[in-house]
Nucleic acid binder design. Structure first.
Lengths: 106, 106
DNA sequence: AATATACGTAAGCATTTACTTACACAAAAA
DNA sequence: TTTTTGTGTAAGTAAATGCTTACGTATATT
């Protein structure tokens, strides 16, 4: 089973979970409350996020607090780096301008 | 069928294709040559990349040149932005340092 | 005109994914 | 001690994914 950051963030629910707990750890039930799917479904998503290192789980009593490891998301940023240089280049900015002009004429 | 940038880059072959043609457009057969899977498999990957806007295809005679649209990858960058602020923060850098020290002691 | 090349796409198939319900179990509360 | 709460996990399932081989078709070459 592939279990990397790219595969983990491919699912929109998992992206929402990451955003939800980015600034404050939440226990599993609190997370699950925010979604319209079953608790076990969320539990399985957390498992994926945990296995690829995006989330770590801190047990406190019977509760499990899920905490994001933002550094792990830097792997995505690193992959993007070479492309960032391209879209920030002058030529790509020109493309952007032309695209804007075209969309305004519609 | 979901067809977004996140899902598109989840597949390692597709990421390799993007990297391969990032700086120079290539026609489909030239791309397929670089991989150990069949041409139709690559064709289907290109279709996904095309449908989500990462790649555009320019036909020249019977050849189809595949060109990356780096701007599209900026959607990823945009999603990452709020997390970038976290991993660049002082606290996360401290975490990083502690992590480094820990790994050196092994 | 016949052949070769560069594709796209359909059909089939094994595997993975994203859920569900049902159940088990440890920790906390009563 | 019994019950409630917070959770993980197993089993089942429908749909999606990533491939393959087979075939069709437009463009170029001979």
């Amino acid at each position: 089973m592939r279990r990397d950051v790219f595969q983990a963030i491919a699912d929109p629910t998992r992206r929402d979970i990451i955003s939800l707990i980015a600034h404050q750890s939440l226990n599993l039930n609190s997370i699950a409350e925010k979604f319209e799917m079953s608790r076990p479904a969320i539990s399985q998503h957390i498992k994926v996020l945990k296995e690829c290192g995006i989330v770590i789980v801190n047990q406190e009593g019977r509760e499990r607090y899920c905490e994001v490891q933002p550094r792990k998301l830097k792997e995505l940023d690193d992959w993007l780096e070479p492309f960032r240089q391209i879209w920030e280049s002058r030529f790509d900015k020109l493309d952007n301008l032309l695209e804007e002009i075209k969309s305004k004429s519609n």
